[in-house]
């Protein structure tokens, strides 16, 4: 039987656009999993907002990638195999508890913010960055405010926040190419949250080359089920 999978080209321009799009989609997808299950109603609405921002960014970025590959946003999201995804590993990790979700959102958003602000030679990406920058600034503020409350809240919330930071740290090497600048933005929040900044040592990597964790396959199996089951159908 013919596969429904597509294989977009390997040019660096395509890969850059896909990496940005995949980061946004997969983190948006994970964040959307909280819907109906968040710790309080106000946070339910906030997490849905953030997920919507990220999915919106992903759509704009896939459309930009589509200009180079000839594929639609849905083909790129729903018809690529795990190995063709270029997202960083950190965004595909399961949500864990609220501390893990928030710490990850903070770390990734700080990295995204720096990338949007650094600017792009590619005009298609500059256009996306201009809008995404404002959204990401809000994501950072939201995640940082929570991280501070969790870190400096109760004994249990402090323990959970520290465990989340420790568990996520080895995945933060892949999200930025200017580690010093990233650390400079992250460190003051960790201090305010009374959390220990882990020492940098070995870092996980592979997402940008399509070598993922075990989790991405499950995520995509769920996300892609309808377009894969009914090839060619319009929804």
């Amino acid at each position: 039987m013919a596969t429904t999978s597509i294989f977009p080209g390997e040019s660096p321009d395509i890969q850059t656009r896909l990496a940005l799009a995949d980061d946004a989609l997969i983190l948006g997808h994970r964040t959307s999993e909280w819907t109906g299950h968040a710790p309080l109603l106000e946070e339910e609405l906030a997490l849905a907002n953030i997920a919507l921002d990220l999915i919106g960014q992903a759509r704009a970025l896939y459309q930009a990638a589509g200009e180079l590959t000839g594929h639609s946003e849905d083909e790129l999201a729903f018809l690529r195999d795990p190995a063709a995804f270029r997202n960083a590993l950190i965004v595909e990790l399961p949500n864990g508890d609220f501390a893990f979700t928030i710490a990850r959102l903070f770390f990734v958003s700080v990295a995204s913010d720096r990338r949007w602000r650094a600017g792009f030679d590619d005009p298609a990406l500059s256009a996306v960055a201009e809008k995404a920058m404002k959204e990401t600034a809000y994501h950072i503020r939201h995640a940082a405010e929570w991280l501070i409350r969790l870190g400096d809240g109760t004994g249990e919330s402090h323990r959970r926040a520290q465990e989340a930071v420790d568990a996520l740290w080895p995945y933060t090497g892949e999200i930025t190419d200017n580690r010093a600048a990233w650390l400079q933005a992250v460190a003051p929040v960790l201090i305010r949250a009374t959390l220990q900044q882990p020492k940098d040592s070995w870092m996980q990597s592979g997402g940008r080359d399509g070598r993922h964790t075990e989790h991405l396959g499950h995520l995509l199996a769920e996300m892609q089920i309808l377009p894969r089951t009914f090839p060619g159908a319009r929804w």
Partner: peptide
């Protein structure tokens, strides 16, 4: 479950 799992988060916000 959502309410019980979120208890520590709400407590943290109040404690802070």
């Amino acid at each position: 479950k959502a309410h019980a799992d979120g208890a520590w988060v709400r407590e943290a916000a109040q404690a802070w």
